[in-house]
Design a protein around this nucleic acid. Structure first.
Length: 237
DNA sequence: AGATTCCTGGTCGATTACTA
DNA sequence: TAGTAATCGACCAGGAATCT
């Protein structure tokens, strides 16, 4: 996925109100920008951090959107809309070995008793449908990419819904997209949300496949790059 | 006191409505 | 009928408000 060029560099002043951040531009001007990540953004909200901003298309209220934040010496993608696009792109290229060979890819399909929407439904004649839920990951602790960085009851709901799919003979995949390239293993964050961690482990025990892919992140492009080992039992540091 | 619901700002894919 | 525009609903996490 190519990012629109040119991006504008700045320094984070503060991130507040979930969707808004103040950024100081090179000339000293401070602008309020859209933050396309309503999560906690653990480790990515330090004042003074280098950031890259994307110009907003005509019609938006705010002139820029936050795209990348520098943390631990690497660029981290914070746009929660990107993982779906990255996976769509990777599916088209056959870059996710576990998900190759499906004839059709549909996005945002409704399913389940709790009226959720799945990120992708892969279909192919003669094979069970494959439900794929994408989760965005940007939190790094030691060697680990950790999820979630805040309590997510919806995430636990998704895990239950996927397990229900497996129980009726279909295929279900939980795919964690890590928008940074400096992690070696994916693990759960029990201390942050023990209920989600338990739901995820139960889903895996029920037959839901757990995958993690790390991205190569640069100021001009983000690509799903390599699978990471998944260790759901690894204790937090 | 604890649990649940609502609201927040903005985006995006799907769906619906409209126009050529 | 096809293409475009408008609308809908879900999403995200956290805090305030409301309910039990």
């Amino acid at each position: 996925m190519d990012l629109p060029q040119p991006l504008t560099e700045g320094r984070l002043v503060r991130r507040y109100k979930r969707f808004l951040a103040d950024v100081e531009l090179a000339g000293g001007e401070v602008v309020t920008v859209h933050c396309p990540n309503p999560g906690r953004m653990a480790g990515l909200d330090a004042a003074g951090a280098r950031v890259w901003l994307k110009p907003a298309p005509a019609g938006r209220k705010l002139p820029f959107g936050l795209e990348l934040v520098e943390a631990d010496g690497v660029w981290v993608g914070i746009n929660t809309g990107h993982p779906n696009g990255l996976v769509r792109e990777a599916l088209a290229l056959g870059a996710i070995a576990e998900l190759r060979g499906y004839a059709s890819v549909r996005a945002e399909v409704r399913y389940g008793s709790e009226r959720s929407r799945i990120d992708f439904l892969l279909e192919d004649p003669g094979r069970p449908p494959c439900w794929v839920e994408i989760k965005n990951v940007h939190w790094k602790v030691g060697r680990f990419a950790r999820f979630p960085d805040a309590v997510t009851s919806r995430g636990a709901k998704h895990a239950r819904e996927l397990a229900a799919r497996v129980s009726i003979g279909e295929r279900a995949v939980l795919l964690y997209v890590i928008q940074r390239e400096d992690c070696e293993v994916f693990g759960l964050a029990d201390r942050t949300d023990p209920a989600y961690a338990a739901a995820c482990r139960q889903a895996k025990a029920a037959g839901v496949e757990i995958l993690a892919y790390a991205c190569a992140v640069r100021p001009d492009t983000i690509r799903l790059e390599r699978p990471l080992p998944v260790d759901l039992q690894a204790p937090e540091d």
